[in-house]
Design a protein around this nucleic acid. Structure first.
Length: 682
DNA sequence: GCGAGCAGCGTACCT
DNA sequence: ACAGGTACGCTGCTCGCG
């Protein structure tokens, strides 16, 4: 089994890493284009094959395919990982520093925890040299294929290597072979950063996170708290109570290991299916993953186009029906299974099949043939899973779903190699026609359609059987792999008006299912830029409306909450607002609260670079000025013992989240306000 | 000089 | 660093008042 293929060690050679040996192969760099080493390349345009002699007069093809990618595809050396064959060691380091951030030039490592195949241990020595040596002994003894950790690429690994060097320890001794350890590269071992994994899983919508810290991620996934410790005071705690630092260290390593193990089957399946090595996949993103698969599948038959820059060129997307605000009973939600992937396959929409403004009926294009295969595989595995349980197969089904859903976006992505805007446009156009068709047939059949978004419709029904009949009628007319499915039947549902408007808000609703669960979409309670206080209150009010049908109970509940806020009874954790910073602080046109909060962190000594792409946490404090002026980063709020602004949390967080729901029930603003005010006077 | 009104920036969400 | 459609808070400007 090949673990990884690496081309970064040398200008001339590619390294293929197996577990107990590696081989080196020369990089082949072609001066004029490339096609299996021949002079004549097969060029496919409109699915017609053209032969072309490559010489200095003719265009250069595939010049931007890296030698590594060519080597893998020429020799068909694709990954084939099996979870049982892979050994991994998860570790975490703790550092002793009295102020600010740990500095590898001065602050020593005091403790290293690791987990390996169920064994867990903490190495903690007074002498840092001995500590690191012992850990290196462990790595050599267990000889893991993968080194796992949380943010190890940015922090633990470079820190460890730097400290090892300062202690005159040979860092190359943890290399598997006679190749040197470079920063972040340990020859023969895959560096697997769970932080990258979490980001990838979030992009695939498998995780929904307020922030990306280990504690938060662990809690969100397992609903358990790991041991917490104030990192700023870690040195102090170490001086008087080493045991609790050691326990904390181990807790972090175990938490990281548990997250890693949970997602490993899926990530290995994704790796095998997308033909991308684990080391590359974990640092990648969905467009690169799909691209890798398309290149692998099309390599022998097609010239792979270069990446190119294109100007923005937008087009129309899915159809969304405006709902009327209010409460509805007996709602059926129907949706098309894998709508866009199915449209791509059924209509042969592809970079190569586009000719004279249309998509050829045959032969099957590259993306459609890959997608067809993926959809069919997934359906057959799902059929097996209905017969028996099989966790390995479940991971495969999930990985296939992730891949299938990535193709449409990739062909519409302006920097994609296989960009075909006409294709993306065609996909959404057919999608719009299909959903509008379902809506009109539903209306003709006597159903009231209350909402629709892209591939789903919500309709009111009197008898369940009418819904099943309707589904059959639609599906009998549908061709190919298109299928309309029953997502679920709901007892009740709520749609709200847009803020300060009469018409209903799209992409915002709550549904009560038969088993008493509430399915919420779009509401503030799902948004990390609303504080927990407002989110929890909205959740409660939704329950009181949808389950108990008791609006006055909701008003009473909110009244009490307002009192608690005024009396400063609210725990600071419920007041934190989260916002991710996507740009450099200086490049914002408007200083929004999260930008102002980030600025305050930088002023207090935080490294600006470390804040980019991170979630900023802030609380609105009691002070004069704009909201931005009042936004205090959590770290400084706690450090300086500040007080939150009750009026902000009442007027800008709690009430907006609640009144949109109550006003959709027919209460006007005055009634709601007086409901709260009455109490204020008491 | 000041507050009201408003455009549009920016984020997070839905499919 | 995969798409478009959408809601909405907030900043920072314009404008009218005087």
């Amino acid at each position: 089994m090949i673990l990884h293929i690496e081309d970064r060690y040398s200008e001339q050679e590619i390294y293929v890493f197996y577990r107990d040996h590696y081989i080196r192969v020369p990089k082949i760099i072609y001066q004029y284009g490339y096609a299996q080493g021949k002079d004549v390349v097969k060029l496919w345009k409109g699915m017609e094959q053209i032969s072309l002699t490559i010489d200095s007069n003719n265009p250069i093809y595939e010049r931007k395919l890296s030698p590594k990618l060519r080597y893998i595809n020429d020799n068909k050396l694709y990954p084939n990982y099996k979870p049982v064959d892979i050994t991994s060691l998860t570790f975490d380091i703790e550092v002793y520093n009295r102020r600010g951030f740990p500095d590898p030039n001065h602050d020593k490592i005091i403790s290293i925890a690791y987990v390996y195949e169920g064994r867990e241990e903490v190495i903690s020595e007074e002498d840092e040299g001995q500590l690191i040596s012992k850990f290196f002994d462990v790595i050599r003894a267990y000889d893991p294929d993968i080194l796992v950790g949380y943010n190890i690429e940015e922090f633990d690994l470079p820190y460890l290597l730097k400290r090892a060097k300062l202690n005159n320890i040979d860092i190359n001794s943890i290399s598997r072979y006679d190749l040197p350890v470079l920063s972040n590269i340990i020859p023969g071992r895959i560096i697997f950063d769970v932080y990258n994994l979490i980001n990838l899983m979030s992009k695939f919508s498998l995780l929904d996170l307020d922030e990306y810290s280990l504690s938060h991620v662990y809690y969100k996934i397992f609903n358990e708290k790991k041991i917490e410790l104030d990192r700023e005071r870690l040195w102090e705690i170490w001086d008087r109570d080493k045991k609790s630092v050691i326990a904390y260290n181990l807790s972090d390593a175990k938490a990281t290991d548990r997250i890693y193990k949970k997602f490993l089957p899926l990530i290995l399946e994704l790796s095998n299916l997308s033909k991308m090595y684990l080391q590359d996949l974990i640092r990648s993103y969905s467009s690169k993953i799909v691209e890798n698969l398309i290149i692998a599948e099309g390599y022998d038959k097609f010239i792979i186009p270069d990446e190119e820059y294109r100007e923005e060129d937008s087009y129309q997307g899915g159809y969304v029906l405006t709902p009327n605000p209010g409460v509805y009973n007996n709602i059926a939600v129907l949706d098309f299974a894998s709508m866009y992937p199915s449209i791509i396959v059924s209509n042969n929409i592809d970079y190569y099949t586009y000719k004279d403004g249309e998509f050829l009926k045959s032969p099957l294009g590259l993306i459609p043939s890959i997608l067809k295969n993926i959809i069919e595989q997934r359906l057959s595995y799902k059929a097996i899973l209905r017969e028996r349980k099989d966790p390995g197969l479940e991971a495969k089904v999930q990985a296939l779903k992730i891949l299938a859903n990535s193709f449409y976006g990739y062909m519409a992505y302006r920097r994609s190699r296989f960009y075909i805007k006409e294709g993306a446009e065609k996909v959404t156009q057919i999608g719009r026609e299909m959903i509008k068709n379902v809506i009109s047939i539903a209306n003709q059949s006597g159903f009231q359609v209350i909402y629709a978004d892209t591939d789903s419709v919500f309709l009111l029904y009197k008898d369940e059987n009418d819904v099943y009949e309707f589904l059959d009628r639609i599906n009998n007319k549908l061709e190919g792999m298109m299928r309309l499915e029953l997502e679920d039947l709901y007892v009740r549902g709520l749609f709200v008006a847009k803020r300060d408007e009469e018409i209903g808000a799209k992409k915002k609703y709550a549904l009560l299912s038969k088993d008493g669960k509430i399915k919420v979409r779009g509401f503030e309670l799902l948004r990390r830029d609303w504080c927990q206080l407002a989110r929890e209150a909205q959740q409660q009010v939704l329950k009181m409306i949808l389950i108990d049908n008791n609006p006055s109970q909701a008003i009473e509940y909110v009244k009490n909450l307002i009192d608690d806020i005024r009396n400063h009874k609210i725990d600071y954790e419920k007041l934190v607002i989260y916002n991710r910073l996507y740009k450099k602080i200086g490049s914002y046109q408007r200083v929004m609260p999260e930008v102002a909060a980030a600025k305050k962190l930088v002023d207090a000594g935080w490294d600006e670079k470390s804040l980019l792409n991170r979630v900023i946490r802030y609380i609105i404090v009691d002070r004069q000025g704009r909201i931005a002026d009042k936004a205090e980063p959590l770290e400084l709020y706690l450090k300086n013992n500040l007080k939150y602004d009750p009026e902000y949390y009442i007027e800008h967080q709690l009430l907006p989240a609640i009144t949109s729901i109550l006003s959709s029930l027919g209460y006007n603003d005055d009634q709601i306000k007086s409901g709260f005010k009455q109490h204020r006077l008491l």
